[in-house]
Each structure stands twice: as C-alpha cells, then as structure tokens.
C-alpha cells in the first residue's frame, strides 16, 4: 500500500498555484492536509499525474469573523475549527462538528478545504455548510467565484469545482448560526458517520422562522430535507419528532455494509430528532418530545 508515482510541486504563491493548475490538466490533484488523499493514494484508488501541495501558498489558513459571518481558509485544520474562539462564537455548530472528524491526529492535519473538495457524502463539513447557508470560494486563472453549498456537492467525490480551480475558503453565514444541533451515528469514536444530521434555525420571537436540516451518509451527496425543515417551522409541541419522522419518510437512503437502507431510515429518525431537540432547546422552543 504505497502511493503510485506522481509529479510533485509546491507552489509558493496563489498565482503560481493557479498557473500550475491551469496547465496540469484533469489528472492533477491538490494536496491540502492529505487525510483523504493519502488513503486514496496508498490504496491506489487514485493515480494522479501531479500532486500540487498547497502548504507553501500563503493566506489559505485564515479564520475571519467579520459581520457575524465566518470565513475559513481552505488550509484551516479540523483541530483549529475545534479550538478557535472566533469559530466557537460565530459558528458553534462548526466547532461541534469538528470534534466528530476522525481522531486527533487526523484533525491535526486534515483541513476543511480538503474535506469539502473531497466531497465524501458521509463527511461532516458539507452538512455544516448546508445547514449554515454556507458557500465555497473557488479560484482559478479565470478568476474567483463563490458557489452556494446547495450547488457545490454533486455526487460521490464530485463537486462543482472544475479541474483548474482550487477551494480557497469556505464561508458560513450568520443567520442560522445560533440555534443549531448536531448529531451523528458513529459505530466507534472517530469513524465516518453512518448518518449525521445538522440542524440550524432562524428564530423570531421564540418561534422557528426558518430551518435547515442537512443529512450526511444517506445519498451520493449531502442532502437537505425540506419536509423536516417544514415540520420544524410548523412548530408543533412535538416538532423534533415530526421533523425526524418527516426526514425518515421522505428520504430513501443508500445501503452498504454499515447499514441497510431501512436501518439508515431508523438512524435518520434518531439523529434528526436529537439534533432538532438540541437546536430547539437552545432557544426554549417546543421541546417537549424526545
């Protein structure tokens, strides 16, 4: 289990990086922390022509908390998300989710940008982005663009990012930041989620005005569940259970060796209920059930 041969380059500036990307073609990959790429290389599930290391490119590891939004550079590690005070204050859901990513040694090296670009449908960051109305910022020699999380994740390991683009940062919106819940079913500490659910709400006068329910591990990409969101907004006394049931009944999950589709439905119910209760309890809204 050794990586296949590749050409390696470590650009020193962003323009240099973008130039290399534009010339390297479809078979090049970008190396951030490597915690998704290295297993793929060691297992020889990936055989890139070029590995382009972001480590020397300055400015990709900033955390910026202006205006209640949080902008996080692609090279920020999971561990920093877990410990950074700006994240804790402005995007506590992200701080919580970071703790579920792998083990400490993985979190020390793995990055949010790498995880999002990798687009594992069971990963935490994509659903955090979806729940917080986030976006992914991309750069290429052609310029900059920002893609809403909704539009970014297309399929397993497949995103809206074009081969000549690099993820430079993620941004988490502020509207949904303060009423949130996160719950994940892991077989063991550090495992990928079988199912993970992020819930975030906009509260007005103690009522849920708007809700986001984003679920990982159930499809070829992270999904939002409008039916569950509607149940939270409807705001009955059993809103969390209603949302959980709506999610369970509206999603047809995948099957794999970690769980059949019908088992995943049960997990969707359990984790949606828990995440929703956490989100609602944070504001004292309809939290009787559970």
């Amino acid at each position: 289990m050794k990586p296949p041969r590749f050409a390696y380059c470590a650009p020193q500036t962003l323009p240099e990086l973008l130039e290399i990307l534009s010339e390297a073609g479809d078979e090049a990959v970008v190396l951030a922390g490597g915690q998704s790429l290295l297993p793929m290389l060691n297992l020889r599930l990936a055989a890139p022509s070029h590995v382009i290391d972001l480590d020397r490119v300055p400015g990709l590891d900033r955390i910026d908390g202006a205006n209640g939004c949080v902008e996080v550079g692609a090279m920020v590690t999971h561990r920093r998300m877990e410990t950074d005070p700006v994240v804790a204050a402005s995007a506590p859901l992200a701080r919580c989710a970071a703790g579920f990513v792998g083990y400490r040694a993985i979190r020390n090296r793995g990055t949010v940008g790498g995880s999002v670009a990798h687009a594992d449908p069971a990963a935490e960051w994509p659903i955090v982005l979806l729940a917080l109305d986030g976006a992914v910022d991309l750069a290429s020699v052609r310029g900059w663009r920002s893609v809403a999380a909704e539009d970014f994740f297309e399929s397993v390991y497949t995103t809206a990012k074009r081969p000549d683009e690099v993820v430079t940062s993620l941004s988490f919106g502020s509207r949904f930041a303060h009423s949130w819940g996160f719950s994940e079913f892991q077989r063991r500490v550090g495992d990928f989620a079988t199912v993970a659910v992020a819930v975030a709400c906009v509260m007005e006068s103690g009522e849920v005005a708007e809700a986001r329910v984003a679920i990982a591990g159930v499809a070829d990409r992270p999904v939002r569940c409008p039916e569950a969101e509607a149940a939270l907004v409807a705001g009955s006394r059993s809103a969390a259970s209603d949302a959980a049931a709506a999610a369970r009944d509206s999603i047809e999950p995948i099957s794999d060796i970690h769980g059949s589709s019908s088992f995943r439905k049960r997990l969707i119910y359990a984790e949606t209920q828990r995440a929703a209760l956490q989100a609602l309890r944070a504001n004292g809204a309809g939290a009787d059930d559970g």
Binding site: Y8, D53, R109
Partner: peptide
Amino acid sequence: SVRSCLTLAVQ
C-alpha cells in the same frame, strides 16, 4: 500528532 503513513515525507 500525525499519522506518518498519511503524510508524505515532503510535507
């Protein structure tokens, strides 16, 4: 702490 098996020497 890092996994040395998931780190290239050049990193």
